[in-house]
Simulated scan of single mutants.
Amino acid sequence: MTTKLKLARLNDGPEIFYTIQGEGKNLGFPSIFVRLSLCNLYCVWCDTDYTWNWQHTPYPHLRDTEPGYQKYDKAQHIVMMEVEALMEAVGQHPCKHVVITGGEPLVQHKALLPFAQRLKSEGYFIEYETNGTIIPNEALDIYSDQYNVSIKLSNAGVLTEERIRPEAISFFAQSSKSYFKFVVDSPQDLSEVLDLVQNYDIPSDKVYLMPQGTSQALLRQKQQWLVALCKEQGFRYTDRLHIHIYGDKRGV
């Protein structure tokens, strides 16, 4: 049986694009993004809501008040792809650094294994953007180079028991491949970050604080106090560089 992955659809094809990493440890690094569809969470400010905010689901979103905004037809926003087609699409770009993102890519961790094996066999570096709720199976972990773990805080509007999975957080906290990126909306969010860092013994030099926002104005509004918090706690600040360069657009 041939394994297929579910990718987000962009225009007439899958959302695979060559750009720079806009967040976290590898900020500014040229990367090929492979955006998978599906997510096990429902963050109210999510900027990739087309990977999970399906018709007939009850989840609220900040965009609900926008004229014309509506939930997505799942069948119209997913592209099924086999490994060979994925490798062909990735191979069109002059880069050996792949970011597998979503949605939540580890929802498909079993189906990801053949793709990850092929990528590594051809010399690619693989990093995952994950919400830290799903433990990758042992086989996939072997072929993973980096996890960018974005544990969701209460500002995401997700139930605590769904966004905080102790076994999964412990797995990532104990992995040398993990870096932690917290989406911060207000200074009050810091107490949640500190609790997680302390409870799971996360090294402070692996913690990145990132402002929540999808516009340059909103990101800049939060920079000063967020940088100050990073200086106080010994954390690292990460911007959303792609927003400053391209705006809130897909495929860049």
Results as ranks from 00 to 15, higher is better:
P187Y: 01
V44I: 15
G24F: 13
K231E: 12
E162W: 14
D49R: 13
G251T: 11
I126G: 02
S144Q: 08
E122A: 11
D248K: 11
F125M: 12
D205I: 12
Y208A: 09
R118I: 11
L86F: 08
L38D: 08
K71Y: 00
V158C: 14
K110N: 10
L10D: 05
A89V: 14
Q224H: 06
E192S: 07
D185M: 15
G102Y: 09
A75M: 07
V79P: 02
R35A: 06
K6G: 00
D141H: 08
L10G: 06
Y124E: 02
V83K: 05
L106Y: 10
Q76V: 02
T57W: 00
I20H: 08
G213V: 01
E82W: 03
E232M: 11
Y59W: 12
E138K: 15
L196Q: 07
F172M: 08
V193T: 10
A8D: 07
E104L: 07
G28H: 11
R9G: 03
E138W: 04
S170T: 12
G251D: 04
L140F: 01
P30Q: 07
A111P: 12
D12S: 15
L229W: 05
I151P: 03
I126Y: 01
R35C: 04
A156I: 13
L219Q: 05
S31Y: 05
H56M: 10
H244C: 06
N199H: 10
D73N: 13
L226A: 03
S150D: 03
I245E: 10
D47C: 04
V98E: 07
Q146C: 11
D73W: 06
C39K: 15
Y50G: 09
K6I: 05
R236V: 03
L86S: 00
Y237N: 06
G91L: 12
G213N: 02
K120C: 06
Y124R: 03
R240I: 02
V149F: 01
Q55H: 11
V34W: 02
I126C: 04
L140G: 01
V184W: 13
P114S: 09
A173T: 00
K120T: 13
Q188T: 08
V193N: 05
C95R: 03
M1Y: 06
Q224F: 14
I16K: 00
G123E: 01
I202T: 03
E88Y: 15
F235C: 09
N155R: 13
L27R: 07
Q117Y: 10
Q224P: 04
L229A: 04
E161N: 08
V252R: 14
S178P: 04
L229K: 01
P105F: 05
F33Y: 09
I243Y: 01
S186W: 10
G24H: 07
L7W: 04
H77C: 08
D189S: 13
Y237E: 09
S154W: 04
T3E: 04
